[in-house]
């Protein structure tokens, strides 16, 4: 049996209409809905910072998302295939395979393996040169292979915690040397209202070497099949802080 949130997604237009109706009739009406029949808040199947951040959730069979940052399709309820389509524009073809390891009432475990191929020129392939990348690879390709073990724990109806352990292998053509880096990422997902999610992100990369610290906050709005996310993250490098927004917009099906 599909969980209640999935039922809403099976009927996106009906869901859209219900959302519009709820909006038009005012939030108190929605709040007055009996808890037993209220659909559970929808969960994120992806992290906002996908190289290091994930969730233990996978899309149901035939479900998925088409978004600025992700295109994903659930397979058989046990896994999902995905890619970040925009990265192709930046000369970085990529793909992810995510497997559901265990799904319980409160705990979900998943493993994801991904591959990013930063083709020559990818390091500086920005629309705007106002962004200075830490990599310029005009003459060589770089490959990043993150292997992630992610778990999601529904601590309360309004709170979900995600933890992701990542082993990232970076290799490439000379002068790049193969390297394995470990990352830990913790995400708190506050499901304040049915269509809104607030997130706090905390990540650490490099284990005892403490190469990178990632801090951030984001907000997610679900409007029927449409989902938008916006956030801001800071990275603490050895040489200082770097802040930037993150944005996503897409449709779930």
């Amino acid at each position: 049996m599909r969980p209640p949130d999935r039922q809403l997604h099976l009927r996106p237009w009906l869901g859209c209409g219900l959302v519009a109706l709820a909006w038009a009739s005012g939030a108190p009406g929605a709040r007055a809905e009996p808890a037993a029949t209220r659909p559970l808040p929808t969960l994120a199947a992806n992290g906002l910072y996908p190289l290091w951040e994930g969730t233990g959730d996978v899309h149901g069979h035939g479900h998925g998302v088409v978004a600025l940052r992700d295109v994903q399709l659930g397979l058989g309820g046990w896994g999902q295939l995905g890619s970040q389509p925009l990265e192709f524009v930046f000369r970085t073809p990529n793909a992810q395979l995510k497997l559901a390891l265990w799904r319980g009432e409160r705990w979900r475990w998943a493993m994801q393996v991904a591959c990013y191929a930063l083709l020559p020129g990818a390091g500086e392939a920005f629309f705007s040169p106002t962004y200075a990348a830490t990599l310029r690879n005009q003459d060589f390709a770089v490959f990043a292979l993150p292997l992630q073990l992610a778990t999601s724990w529904r601590a309360a109806p309004w709170l979900q915690l995600h933890h992701t352990l990542t082993a990232l292998t970076v290799a490439g053509q000379p002068p790049v040397q193969p390297r394995l880096t470990v990352g830990n990422f913790l995400t708190a997902e506050l499901l304040a209202l049915r269509h809104h999610g607030f997130y706090l992100h905390l990540g650490e990369v490099g284990a005892w070497a403490h190469e990178l610290l990632i801090l951030g906050a984001s907000y997610r709005l679900r409007w029927g099949p449409v989902e938008g996310r916006v956030g801001y993250v800071y990275r603490r490098h050895a040489e200082g802080w770097q802040g930037q927004p993150l944005l996503d917009l897409g449709v779930r099906f």
């Binding site: 600025l68 990818a122 392939a125 830490t134 993150l246």
Partner: peptide
Amino acid sequence: LLVAGCDWQHFALVNSLPVEGD
């Protein structure tokens, strides 16, 4: 905004990628 968002995504990817040279 979407064009801007594109750069942000790639910026986040590249600048958190620990590439090591010799």
